[in-house]
Simulated assay, not measured.
Amino acid sequence: MGAGQHELGTRPSLLLRLRDPRDAESWREFAELYGPLVLRYLRRIGVSGDDAPDVAQEVMQIVLKQMPRFDYDPAKGTFRGWLYTVTTNRARRFFARQRRRPPARGGTSNVEMVEGLPDAGAGMEEKWEREWQVRCLQAAIATVRPRVKGTTWRAFEMAVLEDRPPAEVARELGMSIGQVYVSKSRVLKRLSEAVEMVTT
């Protein structure tokens, strides 16, 4: 089952299922949801495109080892917050390893890269949250898109994502303006529900 073809499970139920390292379906779901988040965040904070997948894999290996003992308690913090800490720490270790290598001629030294990585809380957590919001929307779109009629989706896409006037959308798609508004409303409702499944 590919991305967008499964229901996005709520995080608490997914976390419980991840305690079993043999539950391939749950781990696939986890990788689809959180893998792109980790990768985009690593690239955003300066891990190179070639190295980011390797660091992301290190993060996933830590999660795999820790999940059988992971006790989800919202009062102590979110799983996403824990994953942010793990990812940031792996990035710091990566930059520390890089620091021990001689810099390429004319390039930024590895010492500068390590020193340039902000302290946790100095904007890094905001970047992580932005990446999470982007990932939630991507996952919601992948889930909702196959379940919406082509013209309904296109009306939403043009009116919302392309920010085109409803009258122009209606004219181009051969719909009434009212139908454009209904299409927009239906898709937004479904997307909101899909995002809610991920974030609650």
Rank of each mutant, 00 (worst) to 15 (best):
T88H: 09
L16V: 09
R28W: 03
L83F: 01
S48K: 14
W153Y: 09
V86E: 07
V86P: 06
R130N: 10
A104I: 08
L42H: 10
G46T: 12
V169T: 10
M158L: 15
G107L: 05
S109K: 08
A104T: 08
T152S: 06
R92G: 13
I141V: 05
R17Y: 08
P68M: 15
M60R: 08
F156P: 00
A104V: 09
P146V: 01
V169P: 05
G123F: 12
G46C: 14
M113D: 09
D50F: 13
T10I: 01
M124G: 14
K189R: 12
A139I: 00
Q138P: 09
R171D: 15
A52E: 13
N110P: 07
G49D: 11
F30I: 05
R17H: 08
G81Q: 01
R99C: 04
S48A: 10
Q138H: 07
L15W: 06
A139R: 00
P68A: 12
V55W: 08
P118Q: 05
L14H: 01
P74D: 10
L117F: 09
E131V: 11
R80P: 03
F95E: 03
G77F: 02
L14M: 05
A142V: 00
L117E: 06
E131D: 12
L161K: 10
V55A: 12
A3K: 06
V195W: 00
D71P: 02
P165E: 13
A140D: 09
T87N: 10
Q133Y: 07
R90F: 04
I141L: 02
M175T: 15
M124H: 10
V187Y: 01
G150A: 13
A159Q: 14
G116H: 07
R186C: 03
I45V: 14
A122Q: 13
L8S: 02
L18D: 03
E29Y: 00
N89I: 12
K184D: 11
W82L: 05
H6A: 05
E112Y: 08
L33E: 02
R11I: 01
L39W: 07
T200H: 06
M197H: 11
K184P: 06
G49F: 09
S109E: 08
S26A: 15
V195H: 00
R19F: 14
F79T: 03
M113S: 11
V59L: 08
E58C: 13
V111W: 06
E25Q: 04
C136S: 08
R101D: 15
R105L: 07
D20Y: 13
E126N: 13
D51M: 14
T88A: 12
K76D: 05
A155Q: 12
S176Q: 14
E7F: 03
E25N: 01
V114K: 06
V114C: 08
R19I: 15
G174E: 12
L191K: 01
E193H: 03
M1V: 03
R97W: 04
M124C: 13
R17F: 08
K127R: 15
A139Y: 00
R99V: 04
R154N: 11
G116W: 04
A194K: 00
Q98S: 11
L161C: 13
G2E: 10
E157L: 13
G9S: 12
D23S: 05
I141Q: 01
G116I: 07
M60H: 12
E115R: 10
D119H: 12
R190C: 01
P21D: 07
D51T: 12
T87W: 02
